[in-house]
Design a protein around this nucleic acid. Structure first.
Length: 282
DNA sequence: ACTATTTCCTGGATGC
DNA sequence: TGCATCCAGGAAATAG
């Protein structure tokens, strides 16, 4: 389940492999769920575009595209405008972007194939179809709230002010912070010593400071280890991440807390399983 | 203006 | 072994 560290890892891998390449043709599958923009628009935006950069925004992978606008040639001057747009991919739960040779077997649940000028193909595969593809003109894409690794402490603190809902839900709310998902929310709350059900607005300034630092710490460590490989996650090179080995509460229900040996509890908050240590987290 | 709940999807795990 | 059921969860839609 790609969250910020996994998406960052994937985006970096893709950037290495496809930056500077040109998308020649695009094939889109029958299923419409993965398409957030109209199919015709996606094809028109991608075909003939040069990939200028690949980067992450929240849990989205953004391809910065450049294409030469169909210039209306006037008598006096040829306008050769470069049109800037973006291809935005959200991997959902099970989405993958693979760069491969055209001969490679087309996996079941392949929803899009972009043929590149280098001869390779960039494919979007997503069995569960929670992933989404869209296009936007440059600068028009809104990825949501603040980047957790860029936001300042003061701003971070105000995000939770007056909120009656559980802090866990607030951390997952992409309109506040973008990129934190279930694993990293649980891990951050454990390190900050805050229970997931704590109402966000009741958390002290000092505790929020701890949470702020914990979120940064957890995400930074996870990126350094290539993310968490749960079920079948692999990055752009097909490599697994290793942060799952560092999980202190996520997926450890019933196992002893690594700090105090108390069994880790699992509860459901807003439909999400939430793991915490009843002794270490208040 | 919020927050809470439901819905979308398939494959793997579990139960009988 | 086979079949039904449940569960994972991000985000949008819907309900409160």
């Amino acid at each position: 389940m790609p969250e910020l560290p996994e998406v960052e890892t994937i985006a970096r891998g893709l950037a290495k492999r496809v930056t500077g390449d040109v998308i020649e043709t695009v094939w889109l599958g029958e299923k419409s769920e993965p398409l957030k923009s109209p199919a015709t628009e996606i094809v028109a935006t991608l075909q003939g575009a040069l990939i200028g950069a690949v980067r992450r925004m929240g849990k989205h992978i953004v391809f910065d595209l450049q294409r030469n606008e169909k210039s209306h040639r006037t008598k006096k001057l040829k306008t050769n405008n470069v049109q800037l747009s973006q291809w935005i991919v959200h991997l959902g739960m099970t989405g993958r972007l693979q760069v491969c040779e055209p001969e490679a077997e087309v996996l079941k649940h392949t929803h899009a194939i972009a043929k590149l000028a280098s001869g390779r193909e960039l494919r979007f595969v997503d069995p569960r179809r929670f992933g989404r593809l869209s296009v936007a003109s440059a600068g028009n894409f809104d990825a949501g709230g603040f980047e957790p690794l860029e936001v300042e402490l003061g701003k971070f603190t105000t995000l939770f002010r007056g909120r009656k809902g559980p802090i866990k839900s607030a951390l997952l709310n992409q309109k506040l912070l973008r990129g934190v998902g279930n694993i990293y929310a649980d891990e951050s709350l454990f390190r900050a010593g805050i229970r997931p059900r704590r109402r966000a607005g009741t958390i002290s300034r000092e505790q929020l400071r701890r949470l702020f630092l914990s979120v940064r710490e957890v995400l930074t460590e996870a990126i350094a280890l290539g993310g968490s490989s749960i079920s079948d996650y692999v990055d752009a090179e097909g490599e697994e991440g290793f942060f799952q080995l560092k999980h202190r509460v996520y997926g450890r229900e019933g196992e002893p807390c690594l700090v105090c040996k108390t069994p880790i509890k699992r509860i459901v908050i807003g439909g999400r399983s939430s793991h915490y240590c009843p002794k270490c987290q208040k």
